[in-house]
């Protein structure tokens, strides 16, 4: 997960905003996870500077913040697009054609897994089973479940989301 620390992505959270979040959690060290979650929900990803700032303010060694942020898959240290697409690669979805759907999404967006389109609209991620196997193959976009996916549906759904962006 090496990333260029100077690349700031498409949005960058202000320190004032981070301070507000930190204040809400009373600068508690134990609240590191909720703090990072809140920052991520505002900013979509966690830039290097943000992690450094948080570690300084909470007086937690930077390496601890970094290990925690890299441990949990829901934290992203890479810039994420506006819409996060999560394609299921679990067993049930796999046998029902999940890989084909994933491939189709990759073809349409011209990106690989864990990558973001250059226009910062979409980020593609995979997951092992979302616990809704009956709906497979499953694709989740911004928390919304799209069940019984097939390669034909992909284009129209993606179009819907890229229009939303405007």
């Amino acid at each position: 997960m090496i990333q260029n620390p100077t690349s700031r992505g498409n949005c960058f959270i202000e320190t004032a905003e981070i301070d507000k979040i930190l204040e809400k959690h009373e600068y508690k060290k134990s609240a590191l996870i909720p703090i990072l979650q809140e920052i991520q929900s505002k900013n979509r990803w966690l830039p290097c500077e943000t992690l450094k700032y948080v570690s300084e303010k909470l007086d937690i060694p930077l390496i601890d913040v970094y290990s925690l942020a890299t441990f949990y898959k829901s934290f992203s240290l890479k810039p994420r697009g506006k819409h996060v697409i999560t394609a299921c690669c679990g067993t049930a979805c796999h046998v029902r054609g999940g890989p084909k759907v994933l491939q189709e999404i990759q073809n349409q967006l011209n990106i690989g897994v864990d990558e973001t389109t250059p226009d910062k609209k979409f980020t593609l991620e995979t997951v092992r089973c979302l616990g809704a196997c009956a709906l497979g193959p499953l694709v989740v976009i911004d928390g919304k479940y799209h069940g019984q996916m097939n390669t034909k549906k992909v284009a129209s759904i993606l179009k819907k989301y890229s229009k939303k962006n405007k």
Binding site: M1, S67, F71
Partner: peptide, 9 residues
């Protein structure tokens, strides 16, 4: 120092 640690999983 705490300069290094475990990352990823």
């Amino acid at each position: 120092a705490k300069a290094i640690g475990f990352v990823n999983r």
